[in-house]
C-alpha cells in the first residue's frame, strides 16, 4: 500500500467511526412533525439499553477467555469473584478496582 492509500484508509476509518457515533444525533434529534422533542420510542430505548449494554460489555471482556482448555479461565473467574465480593462489602469503587486488578495480575503471573 502506498502512503497515500494508507492515509485514505485511515481517513475512511476515522470518518466511519465518527459516523457511528454521530448518526443518532443527525436522525433522532428531532421529531418528524418538526417539534424539538425526541420521539418517545427512541427516548425509551435510550433508557432501556444502558443496563443491558453494561452487561454486554462485561461479557465482551471475557470473549477471549478459553473456558474449555488451558487455565479454564480460572484467573478471570477468581478475580471477578474477588472484585464483586470486595465491592459488595465496601462499595468503594477505587478499592474494588485496585484489589480486583492486583489479584488478577498476581494470579496470571505467579499462580497460573
Amino acid at each position: 500500500m502506498t502512503i497515500i492509500q494508507q492515509i485514505i484508509s485511515i481517513s475512511i476509518a476515522a470518518i466511519a467511526n465518527f459516523l457511528t457515533r454521530v448518526f443518532p444525533f443527525l436522525i433522532f434529534d428531532h421529531n418528524k412533525n418538526g417539534s424539538d422533542e425526541i420521539s418517545p420510542f427512541i427516548e425509551g430505548l435510550g433508557k432501556f439499553l444502558p443496563p443491558a449494554i453494561m452487561g454486554m460489555l462485561v461479557v465482551y471482556c471475557f470473549r477471549n477467555v478459553n473456558f474449555l482448555s488451558g487455565t479454564h479461565g480460572l484467573p478471570d473467574i477468581i478475580a471477578t469473584v474477588i472484585t464483586v465480593l470486595i465491592h459488595l462489602w465496601r462499595r468503594n469503587m477505587c478499592l474494588s478496582l485496585l484489589v480486583g486488578t492486583v489479584s488478577y495480575i498476581l494470579l496470571v503471573n505467579f499462580i497460573f
Binding site: 449494554i53 453494561m54 472484585t83 465491592h87
Partner: peptide
C-alpha cells in the same frame, strides 16, 4: 483487567440500584 473490573463494578452498582433487572439480565 482494570477495564474488566471497571465494567463489573459499574454494572454491579447499576444492578443494585435498579427497580427492574430485565434490561441487565437480557444484556
Amino acid at each position: 483487567f482494570v477495564m474488566t473490573a471497571l465494567f463489573i463494578v459499574l454494572a454491579l452498582d447499576q444492578f443494585l440500584k435498579e427497580d427492574s433487572h430485565i434490561s441487565s439480565f437480557s444484556g
